[in-house]
């Protein structure tokens, strides 16, 4: 079995994201970039499946500019076998990403796609479901436990009501929630080894994928500010302050 793991390069989750002064977009100059945390969990899960002997190859794919090679190399250092960069300087939205991933999935003949439930930059939470739709395959989203047996995956999903378990036939698309696993730390020798692993660069234009209609961004704004920061000194003062606010 081959597993495909799409990974997105995003601003690191520890960074306090700020708008550019003229509100024309988000400040990215000199900001730390990382693999989307949910995608790192997806890479880890794929590696564990391979290490258990249930898969032969883990392929990571990223769609974006040349710099995404850094995140692909990180995933290779974690243990993925090879990487693909679908190179484009344009921002790609979920439906477009899904079409590209569908094409790569077909070319590579992968049986399982494991990917993040959500990219923490656009917070869309769409691409996996869209990929499943256009591939006419089952989806198991927000997975916190994945078991593979007899050509099926049994996935525990984190839903608002609690935990839901569904069973899907393979091939399938699985998206990860935070509690699926804890990604491993990369060691220095692995980083060196990863430099020699294959990384294919495919210009988006050569892929022959027709890009779908996209949403137009018409503006950015900072969220309304909360005026917090007031402190009280004692429980009595706290009760008093809550009464004054009418919440007690």
């Amino acid at each position: 079995m081959k597993i495909l793991v799409p990974i997105k390069r995003v601003i690191d989750y520890n960074v306090r994201v700020q708008l550019k002064r003229d509100n024309s977009g988000v400040q990215t100059d000199g900001v730390k970039m990382s693999i989307n945390p949910f995608d790192e969990i997806a890479v880890e899960e794929a590696l564990r499946i391979k290490e258990r002997g249930d898969a032969e190859e883990v392929i990571v794919v990223s769609i974006g500019a040349k710099v995404c090679e850094q995140q692909i190399r990180n995933a290779l250092a974690m243990g993925a076998d090879r990487g693909i960069l679908v190179e484009t300087d344009d921002a790609v939205q979920p439906l477009g990403a899904a079409r590209i991933l569908q094409k790569i999935r077909e070319e590579e003949g992968t049986d399982l796609v494991i990917m993040g439930k959500q990219a923490i930059d656009d917070d869309c939470n769409q691409t996996g479901q869209m990929l499943a739709a256009i591939s006419n395959l089952p989806q198991a989203t927000f997975g916190s436990k994945v078991e593979l047996a007899n050509g099926k995956a049994t996935v525990t999903r984190e839903v608002d009501e609690g935990l839901e378990v569904i069973e899907v036939d393979l091939p399938a698309i699985i998206t990860t929630d935070l509690r699926l696993n804890e990604p491993r730390f990369v060691k220095m020798p692995d980083i060196m080894k990863a430099k020699k692993k294959p990384l294919d660069v495919k210009p988006l234009a050569d892929l022959g994928v027709e890009m779908p209609p996209a949403l137009e961004n018409t503006g950015y704004a900072p969220p309304p500010k909360r005026e917090g920061g007031k402190k009280v000194e004692s429980v009595e003062e706290l009760v008093e302050a809550m009464k004054n606010k009418g919440v007690l």
Partner: peptide, 20 residues
């Protein structure tokens, strides 16, 4: 989680982008 799971799948079948 219900709408997040279902809506993108329906939108992709319709071939249109989704506003989350």
């Amino acid at each position: 989680t219900f709408g997040k799971d279902v809506m993108p799948r329906a939108a992709a079948l319709m071939g249109v982008p989704q506003v989350s």
